[in-house]
Design a protein around this nucleic acid. Structure first.
Lengths: 344, 344
DNA sequence: TTGAAAGCGCTAACAT
DNA sequence: ATGTTAGCGCTTTCAA
């Protein structure tokens, strides 16, 4: 048998009631210091550990926060989770992580699991291939606090923490322009995902602000992967439309582009400049170092839980007026895009 | 109010008892197909989701597996977790992840949390700075199934899934020898951790088997970090003891070495060959590609849960005869160590 | 095939 | 400052 000490065991030892023990253990104000000490000592001696299951069932609070991420392979999400945990843990919450693997149905499954586990709140970043949002609607209906981070959907009336992707796209493109590049390509991501669309719009705006005509043939429809970066370069080359710089929608795409350019013996940044987005770890390790846009991941994680905690604390209908927190993108310039160090 | 449907609500609707509903929902054999269907329909209509908290309290089973990893920043662990989840999920278990951040006290905190959450089993990889193992002992005492993966401790009598690090170290070194290197350095990890010690022993054995004298000055005491890789190279250089090849205890150390060698304008692999250990993602992306030893991460994850499930199923005292599963290291040769492609 | 009754371990309202 | 009582929602004997 799997022997477990309960508060009743402690109560018997001390000739008090379970209620007193419970109160002593949670540092309830109206319990004498003497009792608290003896309870704590006995608890320790008997190797007691509070049964959260029973506690949660009774109190209706699980002290659990569920987090849905598309993939753990992407440093970005790992880092956001780090930020989430740093705050959650100090407030006594534990964090459950569920990977959707970029699939809509996995995502729904994860949410079902979380609801079934009666988590106190949910944080989510939408999967690439999610088109049906009913599982998010259900969370709303059940009045379980929910906050989107990074990959949000503004139409659902759900609070979110994102970065200004439009500005990120703008800044990345502007940087390339200032470095003297003028045939600047963009390798995009799926346009039904808002952040990728925003980055493209930022790119367009920067070009137009600097009176550079947008060449639609320099915009390659990618799918956020190393392969799509390679494909883009091959495509540009085959079409004799080689750009002198590339702004990739995120770092893995940029990596693919870099690899293919190297393959073709094209010098980076001398012949073609490259900038990515997300500040994945490997960008620092590859040669040349990859310029990119940092998304303040840890801060994003922290802001997300804090917003969630606010919702969990509020008595009013939880999704009443969705709040949206927008963080600043932070450019990180490394070698891959620097042709004129003096204008940084 | 946070309205939640319960089995009693369903029972009332159908004029049956909660017990019947419970049985119908868990597909109990002795319930008529007719009842099952109507219960399921009503459940769906009322938006019912089983309260796992109550279920767990009553049944004593949480369907939770806790996993302690040193750091999510290391792809290796992310990948193992992936393997763990792939099996666990199909068996109806959910996976909780806790990061120890390589700290012994965080590790203990995580275990406390898991015990308090009454997880059905625990998988753990020991933190770098854990010296006190009492929290693992406690798990044993409570008869909660526990399996170590990768970073194990053989003295505690706890089952584990590891790779053959001795062989890994041997194979890596042998490979360098066969590539014609003969002044082969090793940048080691903390020797109190078994796997790092094993790799060093494998290195020594390979050298001696090939009649190469071990030069103790070519063994640098590192701490498993990019910095220690750089330090090692600087040290060898300052001591005029530059090796013609380096076997680093893991990939981040190897990366540091590569970066420092590049800094010194030393050609890899022509002047100095490099091989790492762990097959981190970035090794594929850097130039030259990093040779390394793959640890069959996904398989390790799968084997770990399977072993755990076996323990969870067994009635006998759980840690009776610890089982140890040893996986084969798989060499991955990229450019950084290849001087003679013909002898691969 | 279904019902009745008890209880998992804890906490909260009410009482003293 | 502590005790009494009840019950969170479910599962599991035992009984019919």
């Amino acid at each position: 048998m799997n022997y477990k000490t309960t508060i009743s065991d402690i109560a018997k030892e001390l000739n008090v009631t379970p209620a007193t023990v419970s109160r002593a253990l949670s540092d309830h104000p109206g319990i004498s210091a003497k009792t608290k000490v003896s309870v704590q000592q006995t608890a320790q001696r008997l190797n007691y550990s509070r049964n959260r299951i029973a506690s949660s069932l009774r109190s209706g609070k699980t002290w659990l926060v569920g987090v849905i991420i598309p993939s753990a392979e992407i440093n970005f999400f790992g880092s956001v989770v780090h930020g989430i945990e740093s705050i959650a843990n100090t407030k006594g919450y534990n964090v459950l992580i569920y990977q959707s693997n970029e699939k809509g149905d996995h995502e729904a499954k994860g949410i079902e699991t979380f609801l079934s586990a009666r988590v106190d709140g949910i944080l989510a970043s939408i999967a690439k291939d999610t088109h049906d949002f009913s599982h998010f609607q259900e969370i709303k209906e059940r009045n379980v606090p929910l906050v989107f981070f990074d990959r949000a959907n503004d139409d659902l009336g759900i609070p979110s923490v994102v970065i200004d992707d439009f500005k990120g796209g703008y800044v990345a493109t502007e940087h390339l322009i200032k470095q003297g590049f003028n045939r600047i390509a963009h390798i995009s991501g799926p346009q039904h995902i808002k952040i990728f669309n925003d980055r493209l719009r930022g790119y367009r705006k920067a070009l137009s602000d600097y009176q550079i005509e947008t060449d639609e043939q320099l915009i390659f429809d990618g799918n956020v992967s190393i392969e799509s970066g390679k494909d883009a370069i091959r495509h540009f080359s085959a079409a004799s439309k080689m750009p002198d710089a590339v702004f990739a929608v995120e770092d893995f795409t940029a990596l693919g582009a870099v690899q293919e350019l190297k393959q073709m013996n094209i010098q980076i940044p001398e012949e073609v400049g490259v900038i990515g987005f997300a500040n994945e770890h490997f960008g620092e390790y590859i040669t040349p170092g990859l310029s990119t846009i940092d998304q303040q991941t840890v801060l994003m994680g922290k802001e997300s839980v804090q917003l969630l905690m606010k919702l969990m604390g509020s008595e009013e209908s939880i999704h009443a007026r969705p709040e949206k927190i927008v963080l600043e993108p932070v450019p990180v310039f490394r070698r891959s895009s620097i042709r004129r160090p003096e204008v940084l």
